[in-house]
Design a protein around this nucleic acid. Structure first.
Lengths: 148, 148
DNA sequence: TTGAACTCTATACCCAGGTATATGGTTCAA
DNA sequence: TTGAACCATATACCTGGGTATAGAGTTCAA
């Protein structure tokens, strides 16, 4: 039941919700490895490529540059290799741990900043909602969203 | 007593660690209000402008665009006004609560993504450190040259 | 078998977010 | 009172991250 789901660039672009040109751009920039090609030269992608593209977009939304994302992808790959119990040289392990710790620091900074921003907004909403409770029946609960 | 902490553009730029041109750019783009001018036309900034610029840079690092940051700044200002017990019209309150809730949703998405990224990196570091050394404590320090 | 839809490479272009430069006025310590 | 260090406006340019277009080959359902 291991379905060999391969797809061409158009499908990957549609599924990852990015432009086809963007995928070729990522390939040129080294964020995506050169995929295998069909006999006629068409790029052939797998689900793991889809995952990778989604990861890239996610990171971009968090303020990482493409260069930083390249580093994150190396770590991402290390996780996969570790899960696959691939033996690594101690020097490689050390390098990865160092990189991971650097990334962790950046991530923690972002988490801290976002949390305080969140707290501030929550306080604002709570205060304004309570305040106007009598006269103004608005969002009393946080994350009160219009239905879709 | 020394509350006359006004500064010119060069000092603000140095303190906020941004380029002078960037400050003028933010002003043109409506992220900074037009500051008070000296008799000779020099821009005169206060500490609250410094705070504002730092807030802008912080948000940029979190993946917000300048347009999103403009929205965040409006909310930021609302917090200040609320603290100052400035009375607002119910319609204004409603609008702000809606905006705040929208921002909260975005922030929560970023927080979730960052947290899972953090967990993944932590797991990697823990696993690699345990595995490869046995005697090597989790550390970013590459000074550890212990060959087993 | 054909034509609409897809893909290829190559090249040019676009937008956000700055950054640099030219030209001229202002400040202030020496 | 002068000159180094500021600041002003205006305009041009740059970088990152894409996006569009041209011209040619491929796929596949009808």
């Amino acid at each position: 039941m291991v379905q060999n789901t391969s797809m061409r660039i158009g499908e990957l672009a549609a599924r990852a919700e990015v432009n086809i040109q963007t995928l070729r751009f990522y390939e040129r920039e080294g964020l995506l490895k050169s995929p295998v090609r069909t006999a006629s030269g068409y790029r052939s992608y797998t689900d793991s490529d889809l995952e990778r593209v989604r990861f890239i977009r996610l990171c971009q939304g968090l303020g990482f540059t493409l260069r930083e994302i390249q580093q994150l992808l190396i770590l991402h790959k290390s996780v996969a290799e570790y899960r696959g119990v691939i033996k690594m040289k101690p020097s490689a392990v050390r390098e990865i741990v160092t990189m991971a710790n650097e990334r962790l620091e950046l991530i923690d900074k972002k988490l801290t900043a976002l949390s305080s921003m969140r707290a501030e907004l929550m306080a604002l909403v709570r205060a304004l909602s309570d305040d106007s409770a009598g006269t103004c029946p608005v969002a009393a609960s946080p994350a009160n969203k219009s239905k879709k």
